[in-house]
């Protein structure tokens, strides 16, 4: 099987202009390759740059040097040089991301938020909502919450909305930033099952899993971001 995501000599540095051009090195020289069905867990202490790496892979952060390439519509797309509309197209069809925090859109119901990735793929509203309902039910989100905007939900409830939103479109590459951080044991188990199902369906997964048990259950290998720490 050929890779679906690759980085070559990827590095990330922040330059803080308000602090006199202070340079904050994060990581450098990361070359990785991911195949369908694999799950790579990123490890390292808090602040080691795991989330920054994930954001680079999503195209949310720009790479300071090196490149991120993703297999999209039978072609390699470089996220560093792709036009914004190409990056958005990659995210629509190929690249899913579950962030730690839900970005709430005023007035939009939970059901519609979860249904949105399907709507963007052209699925009819009713069908998208009905699939969204199945995902929310699977993640044990109480039905009375489905028609409310998630702004006032608890951390764990918002995280489950985020997971449903991130997984519903069945993207072949998934980036998961601590998907189980605020979940109880039952819901952690559900998420582990969902990740297994995604992998079995051929998805390639890169994730940050703080919970050792979860990581051991889902990951096929690990990458310690600390090994790529840039020295000042």
């Amino acid at each position: 099987m050929t890779a679906v995501l690759e980085t070559s000599d990827l590095s990330k540095t922040f330059t803080l202009h308000a602090r006199g051009g202070l340079v904050l090195p994060v990581f450098s020289g990361i070359s990785l390759s991911l195949r369908p069905g694999e799950c790579l867990a990123l490890t390292g202490h808090s602040g080691s740059g795991k989330s920054s790496l994930l954001r680079c892979l999503y195209g949310n952060y720009s790479a300071s040097s090196g490149d991120v390439r993703i297999r999209h519509a039978d072609q390699w797309v470089s996220l560093s040089t792709a036009a914004p509309r190409e990056v958005l197209e990659v995210r629509r069809r190929t690249l899913g991301y579950v962030s730690q925090f839900l970005r709430v859109i005023p007035r939009v119901s939970t059901l519609d938020i979860v249904a949105e990735p399907l709507r963007r793929l052209g699925v009819a509203a009713d069908e998208a909502r009905s699939q969204a309902a199945q995902w929310l039910a699977r993640l044990n989100l109480h039905e009375r919450l489905w028609h409310l905007p998630p702004a006032t939900f608890s951390g764990g409830e918002q995280q489950r909305v985020n997971i449903a939103h991130g997984l519903i479109a069945g993207h072949p590459v998934l980036l998961l930033d601590e998907p189980t951080a605020s979940l109880d044991a039952d819901n952690r188990r559900v998420v582990v099952e969902l990740i297994h199902a995604a992998r079995a369906g051929g998805a390639a997964v890169i994730g940050i899993f703080h919970d050792d048990e979860v990581r051991a259950a889902v990951a096929s290998r690990c990458l310690d971001v600390e090994d790529y720490r840039q020295s000042n």
Binding site: H17, A18, S62, P84
Partner: peptide, 17 residues
């Protein structure tokens, strides 16, 4: 550039400000 990239990883001093 891409909206979320400019907002989350701004490069220019003025954008950062």
């Amino acid at each position: 550039g891409l909206t979320d990239r400019v907002l989350d990883d701004p490069q220019h001093p003025y954008t950062q400000l």
